[in-house]
Design a protein around this nucleic acid. Structure first.
Lengths: 145, 145
DNA sequence: CTTGACCTTTACCTAAGGGGAAGGTTTATT
DNA sequence: AATAAACCTTCCCCTTAGGTAAAGGTCAAG
Protein backbone atom coordinates (compact mmCIF):
# COMPACT_ATOMS: atom_id res chain seq x y z
CA UNK A 1 0.00 0.00 0.00
CA UNK A 2 1.43 3.36 -0.86
CA UNK A 3 0.83 6.64 0.83
CA UNK A 4 -2.18 7.86 -1.11
CA UNK A 5 -4.06 4.64 -0.50
CA UNK A 6 -3.28 4.83 3.20
CA UNK A 7 -4.48 8.42 3.20
CA UNK A 8 -7.78 7.44 1.64
CA UNK A 9 -8.34 4.59 4.08
CA UNK A 10 -7.32 6.43 7.24
CA UNK A 11 -8.76 9.82 6.41
CA UNK A 12 -5.35 11.38 7.01
CA UNK A 13 -3.53 13.47 4.42
CA UNK A 14 -0.24 12.24 2.93
CA UNK A 15 1.41 15.24 4.53
CA UNK A 16 0.10 14.27 7.95
CA UNK A 17 1.31 10.71 7.44
CA UNK A 18 4.79 11.94 6.54
CA UNK A 19 4.65 14.25 9.53
CA UNK A 20 3.94 11.37 11.89
CA UNK A 21 6.85 9.55 10.33
CA UNK A 22 9.10 12.56 10.91
CA UNK A 23 7.96 12.42 14.55
CA UNK A 24 9.00 8.75 14.61
CA UNK A 25 5.46 7.58 15.32
CA UNK A 26 4.79 5.38 12.30
CA UNK A 27 7.71 4.31 10.11
CA UNK A 28 6.69 2.66 6.84
CA UNK A 29 7.39 -1.03 6.90
CA UNK A 30 9.61 -0.72 3.83
CA UNK A 31 10.59 1.36 0.83
CA UNK A 32 10.12 0.25 -2.74
CA UNK A 33 13.16 0.30 -5.04
CA UNK A 34 12.02 3.66 -6.37
CA UNK A 35 11.95 5.14 -2.88
CA UNK A 36 8.16 5.02 -2.45
CA UNK A 37 6.88 4.35 1.06
CA UNK A 38 5.18 0.99 1.48
CA UNK A 39 2.85 0.49 4.43
CA UNK A 40 2.07 -2.74 6.21
CA UNK A 41 -1.25 -3.59 7.80
CA UNK A 42 0.27 -2.77 11.17
CA UNK A 43 1.34 0.63 9.88
CA UNK A 44 -2.23 1.19 8.75
CA UNK A 45 -3.58 0.09 12.11
CA UNK A 46 -1.27 2.47 13.93
CA UNK A 47 -2.12 5.38 11.66
CA UNK A 48 -5.80 4.76 12.29
CA UNK A 49 -5.11 4.72 15.99
CA UNK A 50 -3.36 8.09 15.70
CA UNK A 51 -6.21 9.49 13.69
CA UNK A 52 -8.71 8.50 16.35
CA UNK A 53 -6.57 9.73 19.21
CA UNK A 54 -6.20 13.08 17.44
CA UNK A 55 -9.94 13.17 16.78
CA UNK A 56 -10.78 12.95 20.47
CA UNK A 57 -8.50 15.84 21.32
CA UNK A 58 -5.04 14.45 22.03
CA UNK A 59 -2.02 16.25 20.63
CA UNK A 60 0.28 14.43 18.24
CA UNK A 61 2.81 13.86 20.97
CA UNK A 62 0.17 12.55 23.37
CA UNK A 63 -1.28 10.36 20.63
CA UNK A 64 2.18 8.96 20.05
CA UNK A 65 2.46 8.17 23.71
CA UNK A 66 -0.90 6.40 23.64
CA UNK A 67 0.15 4.52 20.53
CA UNK A 68 3.23 3.29 22.33
CA UNK A 69 1.06 1.96 25.14
CA UNK A 70 -1.26 0.39 22.57
CA UNK A 71 1.56 -1.27 20.65
CA UNK A 72 3.08 -2.57 23.84
CA UNK A 73 1.70 -5.90 24.88
CA UNK A 74 1.63 -5.06 28.58
CA UNK A 75 -1.47 -3.69 30.29
CA UNK A 76 -1.52 0.04 30.77
CA UNK A 77 -5.13 0.61 31.81
CA UNK A 78 -4.23 2.85 34.72
CA UNK A 79 -1.85 5.10 32.77
CA UNK A 80 -4.23 5.38 29.84
CA UNK A 81 -7.18 6.18 32.04
CA UNK A 82 -5.10 8.82 33.82
CA UNK A 83 -4.17 10.39 30.48
CA UNK A 84 -7.81 10.52 29.49
CA UNK A 85 -8.73 12.05 32.83
CA UNK A 86 -6.05 14.69 32.48
CA UNK A 87 -7.19 15.55 28.98
CA UNK A 88 -10.73 15.82 30.26
CA UNK A 89 -9.63 18.22 32.94
CA UNK A 90 -7.77 20.31 30.35
CA UNK A 91 -10.90 20.44 28.23
CA UNK A 92 -13.01 21.48 31.18
CA UNK A 93 -10.59 24.28 31.94
CA UNK A 94 -10.64 25.39 28.32
CA UNK A 95 -14.44 25.36 28.30
CA UNK A 96 -14.63 27.42 31.48
CA UNK A 97 -12.27 29.98 29.95
CA UNK A 98 -14.39 30.13 26.81
CA UNK A 99 -17.52 30.54 28.90
CA UNK A 100 -15.88 33.41 30.73
CA UNK A 101 -15.01 35.09 27.44
CA UNK A 102 -18.53 34.51 26.17
CA UNK A 103 -19.99 36.20 29.23
CA UNK A 104 -17.69 39.20 28.90
CA UNK A 105 -18.33 39.57 25.18
CA UNK A 106 -22.08 39.22 25.62
CA UNK A 107 -21.86 42.03 28.13
CA UNK A 108 -19.82 44.15 25.76
CA UNK A 109 -22.19 43.39 22.90
CA UNK A 110 -25.16 44.57 24.93
CA UNK A 111 -23.59 47.87 25.92
CA UNK A 112 -23.53 49.27 22.37
CA UNK A 113 -26.73 50.15 20.51
CA UNK A 114 -25.14 49.45 17.15
CA UNK A 115 -26.35 52.73 15.73
CA UNK A 116 -23.82 54.86 13.90
CA UNK A 117 -24.96 57.97 15.73
CA UNK A 118 -22.88 57.74 18.87
CA UNK A 119 -19.42 56.84 20.04
CA UNK A 120 -19.23 53.05 20.35
CA UNK A 121 -19.47 52.05 23.99
CA UNK A 122 -17.62 48.79 23.28
CA UNK A 123 -14.52 50.66 22.15
CA UNK A 124 -14.65 52.91 25.16
CA UNK A 125 -14.95 50.00 27.50
CA UNK A 126 -12.06 48.21 25.78
CA UNK A 127 -10.00 51.37 26.22
CA UNK A 128 -10.62 51.88 29.91
CA UNK A 129 -11.47 48.46 31.34
CA UNK A 130 -9.86 48.27 34.75
CA UNK A 131 -7.02 50.56 33.87
CA UNK A 132 -6.23 53.39 36.26
CA UNK A 133 -4.61 56.09 34.17
CA UNK A 134 -1.60 56.71 36.39
CA UNK A 135 0.59 58.10 33.68
CA UNK A 136 3.68 59.80 35.14
CA UNK A 137 2.72 63.42 34.62
CA UNK A 138 5.26 65.02 36.93
CA UNK A 139 8.08 62.54 37.04
CA UNK A 140 11.62 63.60 36.28
CA UNK A 141 11.57 62.05 32.81
CA UNK A 142 8.36 63.86 31.90
CA UNK A 143 10.17 65.60 29.05
CA UNK A 144 10.81 62.26 27.47
CA UNK A 145 7.11 61.61 27.08
CA UNK B 1 8.44 56.19 29.46
CA UNK B 2 10.53 53.31 28.28
CA UNK B 3 9.50 49.82 27.46
CA UNK B 4 9.82 48.19 30.86
CA UNK B 5 7.71 50.87 32.52
CA UNK B 6 5.06 50.46 29.84
CA UNK B 7 5.16 46.72 30.36
CA UNK B 8 4.57 47.13 34.09
CA UNK B 9 1.66 49.52 33.59
CA UNK B 10 -0.07 47.63 30.78
CA UNK B 11 0.57 44.12 32.02
CA UNK B 12 2.12 43.26 28.66
CA UNK B 13 5.64 41.87 28.30
CA UNK B 14 8.31 43.93 26.54
CA UNK B 15 8.44 41.15 23.99
CA UNK B 16 4.73 41.51 23.25
CA UNK B 17 5.04 45.28 22.97
CA UNK B 18 7.84 44.91 20.43
CA UNK B 19 5.75 42.32 18.62
CA UNK B 20 2.82 44.73 18.30
CA UNK B 21 5.24 47.30 16.96
CA UNK B 22 6.51 44.80 14.38
CA UNK B 23 2.86 44.31 13.37
CA UNK B 24 2.61 48.11 12.93
CA UNK B 25 -0.03 48.40 15.65
CA UNK B 26 1.70 50.72 18.13
CA UNK B 27 4.82 52.60 17.03
CA UNK B 28 6.67 54.31 19.87
CA UNK B 29 6.27 58.05 19.71
CA UNK B 30 10.04 58.53 19.46
CA UNK B 31 13.43 57.01 20.04
CA UNK B 32 15.97 58.34 22.48
CA UNK B 33 19.45 59.17 21.20
CA UNK B 34 20.66 55.79 22.45
CA UNK B 35 17.97 54.00 20.42
CA UNK B 36 15.67 53.26 23.35
CA UNK B 37 11.94 53.31 22.61
CA UNK B 38 10.05 56.17 24.24
CA UNK B 39 6.30 55.86 24.61
CA UNK B 40 3.75 58.65 24.72
CA UNK B 41 0.56 58.64 26.73
CA UNK B 42 -1.33 57.83 23.51
CA UNK B 43 0.99 54.86 22.91
CA UNK B 44 0.22 53.68 26.41
CA UNK B 45 -3.51 54.11 25.85
CA UNK B 46 -3.35 52.08 22.65
CA UNK B 47 -1.30 49.31 24.23
CA UNK B 48 -3.85 49.07 27.02
CA UNK B 49 -6.57 48.86 24.42
CA UNK B 50 -4.75 46.00 22.72
CA UNK B 51 -4.25 44.23 26.01
CA UNK B 52 -7.95 44.38 26.78
CA UNK B 53 -8.98 43.34 23.28
CA UNK B 54 -6.63 40.35 23.55
CA UNK B 55 -7.97 39.55 27.00
CA UNK B 56 -11.53 39.20 25.73
CA UNK B 57 -10.48 36.76 23.01
CA UNK B 58 -9.62 38.76 19.90
CA UNK B 59 -6.53 37.80 17.91
CA UNK B 60 -3.74 40.33 17.53
CA UNK B 61 -4.85 41.12 14.00
CA UNK B 62 -8.45 41.60 15.09
CA UNK B 63 -7.34 43.69 18.04
CA UNK B 64 -5.38 45.86 15.64
CA UNK B 65 -8.47 46.29 13.54
CA UNK B 66 -10.48 47.31 16.60
CA UNK B 67 -7.72 49.68 17.63
CA UNK B 68 -7.90 51.36 14.24
CA UNK B 69 -11.63 51.88 14.71
CA UNK B 70 -10.99 53.19 18.21
CA UNK B 71 -8.28 55.61 17.12
CA UNK B 72 -10.43 56.87 14.28
CA UNK B 73 -12.69 59.70 15.31
CA UNK B 74 -15.64 58.48 13.24
CA UNK B 75 -18.37 56.32 14.70
CA UNK B 76 -18.06 52.63 14.05
CA UNK B 77 -20.65 51.19 16.43
CA UNK B 78 -22.18 48.90 13.84
CA UNK B 79 -18.88 47.40 12.63
CA UNK B 80 -17.58 46.94 16.15
CA UNK B 81 -20.76 45.31 17.33
CA UNK B 82 -20.64 43.00 14.33
CA UNK B 83 -17.06 42.02 15.14
CA UNK B 84 -18.06 41.21 18.69
CA UNK B 85 -21.03 39.18 17.48
CA UNK B 86 -18.81 37.22 15.10
CA UNK B 87 -16.28 36.51 17.84
CA UNK B 88 -19.11 35.37 20.08
CA UNK B 89 -20.29 32.96 17.43
CA UNK B 90 -16.76 31.61 17.01
CA UNK B 91 -16.53 31.06 20.75
CA UNK B 92 -19.87 29.26 20.81
CA UNK B 93 -18.68 26.97 18.04
CA UNK B 94 -15.44 26.30 19.88
CA UNK B 95 -17.35 25.54 23.07
CA UNK B 96 -19.66 23.11 21.31
CA UNK B 97 -16.66 21.31 19.85
CA UNK B 98 -15.09 21.08 23.29
CA UNK B 99 -18.33 19.79 24.75
CA UNK B 100 -18.39 17.12 22.06
CA UNK B 101 -14.85 16.05 22.92
CA UNK B 102 -15.69 16.04 26.61
CA UNK B 103 -18.63 13.74 25.99
CA UNK B 104 -16.56 11.34 23.91
CA UNK B 105 -13.71 11.29 26.40
CA UNK B 106 -16.06 10.82 29.33
CA UNK B 107 -17.45 7.84 27.50
CA UNK B 108 -13.98 6.47 26.85
CA UNK B 109 -12.96 7.08 30.43
CA UNK B 110 -15.92 5.09 31.71
CA UNK B 111 -15.24 2.07 29.51
CA UNK B 112 -11.96 1.17 31.23
CA UNK B 113 -11.85 -0.12 34.80
CA UNK B 114 -8.38 1.30 35.35
CA UNK B 115 -7.11 -1.96 36.77
CA UNK B 116 -3.84 -3.28 35.44
CA UNK B 117 -5.28 -6.74 35.10
CA UNK B 118 -6.91 -6.50 31.70
CA UNK B 119 -6.32 -5.09 28.26
CA UNK B 120 -7.29 -1.40 28.34
CA UNK B 121 -10.66 -0.90 26.67
CA UNK B 122 -9.82 2.71 25.84
CA UNK B 123 -6.89 1.66 23.68
CA UNK B 124 -8.99 -0.93 21.93
CA UNK B 125 -11.72 1.55 21.22
CA UNK B 126 -9.19 4.06 19.92
CA UNK B 127 -7.83 1.37 17.64
CA UNK B 128 -11.10 0.30 16.10
CA UNK B 129 -13.46 3.27 16.37
CA UNK B 130 -15.52 3.36 13.20
CA UNK B 131 -12.82 1.80 11.10
CA UNK B 132 -13.79 -1.06 8.80
CA UNK B 133 -10.68 -3.15 8.29
CA UNK B 134 -10.76 -3.38 4.51
CA UNK B 135 -7.09 -3.93 4.08
CA UNK B 136 -6.30 -5.16 0.54
CA UNK B 137 -5.50 -8.75 1.28
CA UNK B 138 -5.69 -10.15 -2.24
CA UNK B 139 -4.90 -7.18 -4.41
CA UNK B 140 -2.21 -7.40 -7.03
CA UNK B 141 0.33 -5.47 -4.95
CA UNK B 142 -0.23 -7.72 -1.96
CA UNK B 143 3.44 -8.77 -2.06
CA UNK B 144 4.41 -5.19 -1.41
CA UNK B 145 2.73 -5.20 1.94
C1' DC C 1 6.64 9.59 -26.72
C1' DT C 2 4.21 12.30 -24.18
C1' DT C 3 0.61 13.27 -20.76
C1' DG C 4 -1.13 12.69 -16.24
C1' DA C 5 -0.92 10.72 -11.94
C1' DC C 6 1.87 9.22 -8.78
C1' DC C 7 6.01 9.70 -5.61
C1' DT C 8 10.34 11.99 -3.42
C1' DT C 9 12.81 15.77 -0.63
C1' DT C 10 13.39 20.61 0.58
C1' DA C 11 11.99 24.73 2.35
C1' DC C 12 8.99 28.46 3.64
C1' DC C 13 4.33 29.75 5.96
C1' DT C 14 0.98 30.04 9.75
C1' DA C 15 0.05 32.73 15.79
C1' DA C 16 1.95 34.98 19.32
C1' DG C 17 5.31 35.67 21.25
C1' DG C 18 9.40 32.98 24.60
C1' DG C 19 14.21 32.29 25.26
C1' DG C 20 18.60 33.49 24.68
C1' DA C 21 22.85 35.40 22.30
C1' DA C 22 25.77 39.31 21.41
C1' DG C 23 26.44 43.82 22.23
C1' DG C 24 25.67 49.02 23.58
C1' DT C 25 24.22 52.43 27.77
C1' DT C 26 23.80 54.14 31.99
C1' DT C 27 23.95 53.88 36.93
C1' DA C 28 25.66 52.24 41.33
C1' DT C 29 29.12 50.42 43.99
C1' DT C 30 33.79 49.39 45.32
C1' DA D 1 38.87 54.44 37.61
C1' DA D 2 37.05 49.99 37.21
C1' DT D 3 33.47 46.98 37.40
C1' DA D 4 29.08 44.90 38.09
C1' DA D 5 23.94 45.36 37.82
C1' DA D 6 20.25 46.64 35.26
C1' DC D 7 18.62 48.47 31.48
C1' DC D 8 18.16 48.59 26.30
C1' DT D 9 18.94 47.05 21.19
C1' DT D 10 18.63 43.65 17.11
C1' DC D 11 18.80 38.94 15.43
C1' DC D 12 17.79 34.21 15.31
C1' DC D 13 15.77 29.83 16.56
C1' DC D 14 11.73 27.44 18.95
C1' DT D 15 6.93 26.05 19.55
C1' DT D 16 1.77 23.10 16.68
C1' DA D 17 0.41 20.39 13.00
C1' DG D 18 0.78 20.22 9.15
C1' DG D 19 -0.46 23.38 4.15
C1' DT D 20 1.47 24.87 0.04
C1' DA D 21 4.28 25.08 -3.32
C1' DA D 22 8.91 23.95 -6.03
C1' DA D 23 11.94 20.88 -8.43
C1' DG D 24 12.46 16.56 -9.90
C1' DG D 25 12.11 11.14 -10.35
C1' DT D 26 8.80 7.15 -11.73
C1' DC D 27 5.11 4.69 -13.79
C1' DA D 28 1.01 3.20 -16.68
C1' DA D 29 -1.88 4.53 -20.65
C1' DG D 30 -2.91 6.63 -25.00
Amino acid sequence: MQINDVARVTGLTPKAIRYYEAQSLVIPHQRASNGYRIYSRENLDHLCFLQHARAVGFSVKESGHLLALYADQANHSASVKALVAEKLSQLQQKRKEIERLEATLTDLWACCDGQENSRCAILDRLATAGFDTNFPRDSKEADNV
